[in-house]
Amino acid sequence: MMWPSQNARRMWATVATFAAFLGGFLAYLNVEPVAVLFQGQHLQNLFRDVFPPRLAVLWERSGLWWSVVETLAMAFAGTTLGLAFALPAGLAGAANTTPHGGLRAAVRFQLSLERALSSFFILMVLLIAFGLGPFAATVTLALGTLGGFGKLFAESLERVEAAPAEALAALGASRSQQICFAVLPQAAPALITGSLYAFDINLRAAIALGIFGAGGLGAELLLAYNTLRYHDVLALALVSLVLVTAVERVSDFLRQRI
């Protein structure tokens, strides 16, 4: 038990260390937040430039809704493709289902590489390879999904109870029969929940990749931004917000039903 005075001293020491670190980082970045925030007219300018959102862009700009559909399609196709590869990757990467320990290590390493590579770099490479268009973005999303959800699937497979598989083994079931009838059914709820979650993430990522040149709603945003139509940018940001929130609600609803 620590006395309050000691406790307080420790707290102030922690706060001082934090402040010193923060100050150090800001100094390294050549940033003076107080000066930037309060001396300039930046925030007033932002509000003047951006507010109110020009909602007219929603019906004036033909092709906008098509770009929304394209973003949804990229996210959905990317999710499905990624998950289709994530399931075998998860099976190969989980200790209790992998055919070989060496394969497990290789798959795990490859998945971690896919998670660590920045998506915009993958997209840039794929845009050169496959040309401009939604193809490269879809594959980028699929690779990201594979990296994240391959790992997640492997972990949920490893968390499964061992007893049912052992019981089947005692009855003479083969390894693949054990996996099909004892391991996968136990992990299924986690896998399905994860899949719905993957679409939420990918929709957001699809909008972000659009800003890097992948087309869809993100491209509309970038175009408005580059032509200094900031009121349109805000309106399009609101569209993204509604879209992401709506999809989140739908997947919450589906998750509860399953």
Partner: peptide, 10 residues
Amino acid sequence: ALPEILQLLF
């Protein structure tokens, strides 16, 4: 709900 990139633009 909003991608960080989009917030960065603002």
